[in-house]
Nucleic acid binder design. Structure first.
Lengths: 215, 215
DNA sequence: CTTCCTTGGAGAGTGACACTATCCAAGCAT
DNA sequence: ATGCTTGGATAGTGTCACTCTCCAAGGAAG
């Protein structure tokens, strides 16, 4: 198919597709003449993934390029590819190391990983983006005076461990390593708004249950 | 204290504080002469909350103003204030109603609320931002061909319900309705990166457990 | 064959956003 | 008196995700 058809089928304007091609988010089509290229179903699928990452997952364009490059990197096994792809995702601002609240938060987080038994993370992933995201958030809570120690975080960590089992079961339903890595990235990013939306709905429900006035 | 001291104690530049004052994120100080104002501990606390919302919670400035205005609105009870504040938070782009995947996602989400017994949400909050966020994410998963029906979402919803109990217990430790609403907003926003960070760490741990090659 | 439209590539322009820099007059400090 | 700081207003900066405009080459209709 041509650019116009790719645009129509995906709902993305030709100008935006050209922009993604320029930014190397989308691989170029197969040139059929000097001025025209042919695109296939893989391009359509990739384009839909790009839109989902950027619009729903709020991933910046340059970051999405890095994530997709890691997904396509055939020279590694799936664990390594998945790690590289998730590591490329945005993790918010890095914590302010000058702030004592950050040091305290780092201790809390390290202690939590030890207590919940994530020894892989203890060894390898303490410098990961996900760990930094956790530390920055815990530090912000400390600065505001809200309690956020290991005991408070444990139930959240245990639930995260349960969710990870469900998530990875889903991923393992796919056949090829390539499909698995793409699924892992898509599920990691797209289930995040699902989790946050459900939490806010559950809080509204619980708040209503506790605070509603009469009626 | 003066602007310079507020800046030093909060770590926020005077230029940025002036910007927040201009944007009505921070209430003005008490004018002490024609060219100087006095700020107090409440200003410092509010400023820290603003920074946490914007930097850690990635809330846009104009949105943070609306959230804080809802927090300060003494004319409502805490349930209503909390609802207004959370509703003012960003929920991502609104789903594309022209897309059949959105219609399907809306059915899935409605069915999920019914099955998990959130009748308050079923009646009131189907037009809430959190619900739209959920629908948009489920629709994106549908478009990419990933399974995401009521059965898949149920464990996530049940966990969200458990988390909401923990969260509201924390909120109820505070005395005044004002403190409770501020705590609810801060905990809602700042626990989100905690949850996402823990999930990513748990996935890395689980992925390592399943896919690591030898050693 | 000619005229018109479409295509892909490249560069510049747009609007939103979160600051940031510059001015300025009024005041306080020495 | 003089120099620095303060708060207020205005304009500028850098980033981001597009979006617009232009262009030459390539079909399509008559």
């Amino acid at each position: 198919m041509r650019l116009a058809e790719l645009s129509e089928r995906s709902g993305v304007s030709t100008a935006t597709i050209k922009y993604y091609l320029r930014e190397r988010l989308l691989p170029p089509g197969r040139p059929v003449t000097a001025t025209q290229s042919e695109y296939d179903e893989d391009h359509l699928r990739r384009l839909r993934l790009i839109r989902a990452l950027i619009q729903v997952g709020r991933v910046p364009v340059s970051t999405a390029r890095d994530v997709l490059a890691a997904v396509d990197d055939d020279s590694r096994d799936q664990h390594s590819r998945l790690g590289a792809a998730v590591e490329a995702l945005p993790h918010g601002p890095r914590p302010d190391e000058a702030d004592p609240a950050t040091t305290a938060a780092r201790h809390t987080a390290t202690d939590l990983l030890r207590r919940v038994g994530w020894h892989f993370n203890l060894g390898v992933a303490e410098h990961s983006g996900a760990f930094r995201m956790l530390v920055a958030a815990v530090a912000a809570l400390h600065r505001l005076g809200y309690p956020c120690d290991t005991a408070h975080l444990l139930p959240y960590a245990r639930q995260a461990a349960e969710l990870a089992v469900v998530d990875l079961d889903l991923v393992e339903e796919y056949e090829t390593p390539g499909e698995q890595v793409e699924a892992a990235v898509a599920l990691t990013v797209l289930y995040e708004p699902v989790l946050l939306g459900l939490r806010r709905l559950a809080e509204a429900e619980e708040s209503n249950r506790r605070f509603r006035t009469g009626s």
